[in-house]
Write a protein that binds this DNA or RNA. Structure first.
Lengths: 327, 327
DNA sequence: GTGAAAGCGCTAACAG
DNA sequence: CTGTTAGCGCTTTCAC
């Protein structure tokens, strides 16, 4: 790998001039510019990022800390972030955190050690490390401590899910909450319940502990075994909904005739399962994109109009909810 | 961020001693060791990775270059790689390359500029940049140029798919090939065709240009519109199979009674679609893991028994292939 | 066992 | 507009 020194030599100029040229700051004459360009091409020079970062204490690197990359919601989020960031010359470091605190901690450390430009995370680590000096935007699971956040309108989403199911004739609904440490989940959950209470529809609150399909499947089996005779289920995610659908199939019950179910997220899979899942759509891609934009603006000292960005949601009618007027 | 100098000062020792301590090489007395540990804890010191990398010309970083993170095969691969690498103290830089050559090129450059320890990629860039001096292992789409590769037994997989479908009574099969630039796809495809010829079963070769669902859907629509009356389809991936299934539904044909179809990959989604997809299983997670292990071994100068690792595949019977003896 | 010194490749005053 | 200089934080001979 060629160095700036060799380029300077080749071009018959000093390191500083070359440095000014590549950093695009300070004056460089057209003549010098030309010589440098030739030298760079000839030597196939490309600046050493470690040296650059060491000197400037900056790094065009952003950490992307996700709970589970195999959950289809997150690859889309990653894609949204990566596409924007790469366009701006930033790199993304992928961290699959799971529920593992150690792992998160390790990544935070590494990111700090690398002078990373920022962190996009689903977990608000600033609660645990409040004096961590690095820009961070929390996506999806935004709490109140976060300075910057991107999330969808969980309140509306939760209400909407309940509304859809009630209008389709729900009489006895199971409202299942996802793991409660996720604030967004909690908001949806509360909003659904509030709506149900308003409309005086019977319901029971259920609590799921996991996002792992196998785990949820077990929970679903137990829930459905307790003969509560739910005629409707509000699921906290499409993955949850699918696990329930799977178990409902095993019980030979008809969807949506005997049990109707609504998901949340609208992951790609939702349209391919049987019956196709009716769900509340939120855009993971958009979330990743907006989060990346925020980080970029912070890193480049651009003004930020909104530090908390709320994305709209909407209902996608498919086959797991009874159609109005079609009893 | 504290520096090694401050730690040295605090411990009453020299930078070199502290450096030897953190790098775990060279002698450090127990007494010094203790003082350093205290100082590090007190100052919350953690070495600057850029400085380290600049000096040592090494970086515990590996690039993961994928064609499309939203294709469910790749998140699992990423997970396998990330979990192993993080355990070993390495980081992964995620690059979503698409079919974009520029993007791949940019990432290769950045990885080089960062002294990355290696690259895991689905595309054998060494064909284009043969003198790129960085360890690389090609996953999934391994060609002949690659020094290191991890791939599944595509030959067997292709034959197996054809065998399954023939034994289920196929008379007129559409063998669809994925984009042909992917060697693995090509091998499967050829193996399927070879088997079909052996068994003297009528078939037609079809060529898909994409992995994007919408695109494939269009292709499928066209294929099915040309009334060739296929009774069986061998798909190059589960995603392709799903697109075909989707279109077959539109045509109100029964699966597997009128058309049977076999996929490839066994992504999670496959068990949830309707009908559940019969497919050839290969483990993306394992692929990522093995690739990461290879990189790690190369980076740490460990002996490598096998530079090309072939993973086994197997058939997963579900509902899109007719059961033997059940006509 | 430990420290002094040089230097990795780059940037940023500052002087010219 | 360009070059000199110092130094980012770390590692690594090489003396002591």
């Amino acid at each position: 790998m060629a160095t700036i020194k060799q380029v300077a030599l080749e071009a018959g100029l000093s390191k500083s001039t070359v440095s000014r040229f590549i950093a695009q700051n300070g004056y460089v004459s057209d003549e010098a510019r030309k010589k440098i360009e030739e030298a760079i091409k000839k030597l196939n020079f490309t600046p050493n990022l470690s040296a650059q970062s060491l000197k400037t204490k900056k790094n065009q690197l952003v950490g992307l800390l996700l709970p589970d990359i195999s959950n289809p919601f997150f690859p889309m989020l990653a894609k949204g972030a990566e596409e924007f960031l790469k366009e701006k010359g930033y790199r993304v470091m992928l961290g699959n955190i799971g529920e593992n605190h150690q792992s998160e901690h390790d990544y935070l450390k590494v990111l700090l050690q690398s002078n990373a430009a920022g962190i996009i995370s689903t977990h608000d680590f600033k609660e645990e490390f409040p004096d961590l000096d690095i820009p961070s935007v929390i996506v999806d699971r935004v709490g109140h401590k976060s300075n910057y956040g991107v999330f969808s309108d969980n309140e509306s989403g939760g209400r909407l899910a309940a509304k859809v199911i009630v209008e389709a004739g729900a009489k006895n609904v199971a409202v299942v909450s996802g793991p409660l440490n996720a604030t967004n989940i909690n908001n949806r959950f509360k909003a659904s319940i509030a709506y149900l209470k308003e409309k005086k529809v019977d319901f029971k609150a259920l609590y799921s502990q996991s996002y792992d399909f196998e785990e949820i499947q077990k929970e679903a089996r137990e829930v459905l075994a307790n003969k509560e005779n739910f005629d409707s289920i509000i699921a906290p995610s499409d993955i949850h909904a699918m696990a329930y659908i799977h178990e409902i199939h095993r019980l030979d019950k008809k969807i949506p005739e005997e049990i109707q179910i609504i998901g949340y997220d609208d992951i790609q899979m939702s349209q391919f399962i049987y019956p196709a899942l009716s769900t509340i759509h939120q855009s993971a891609y958009q979330m990743g994109l907006e989060a990346a934009q925020l980080i970029y603006k912070i890193a480049t000292d651009q003004p930020i109009e909104k530090s908390k960005i709320e994305l709209p949601v909407h209902y996608v009618a498919r086959e797991t909810i009874r159609q109005k007027g079609k009893e």
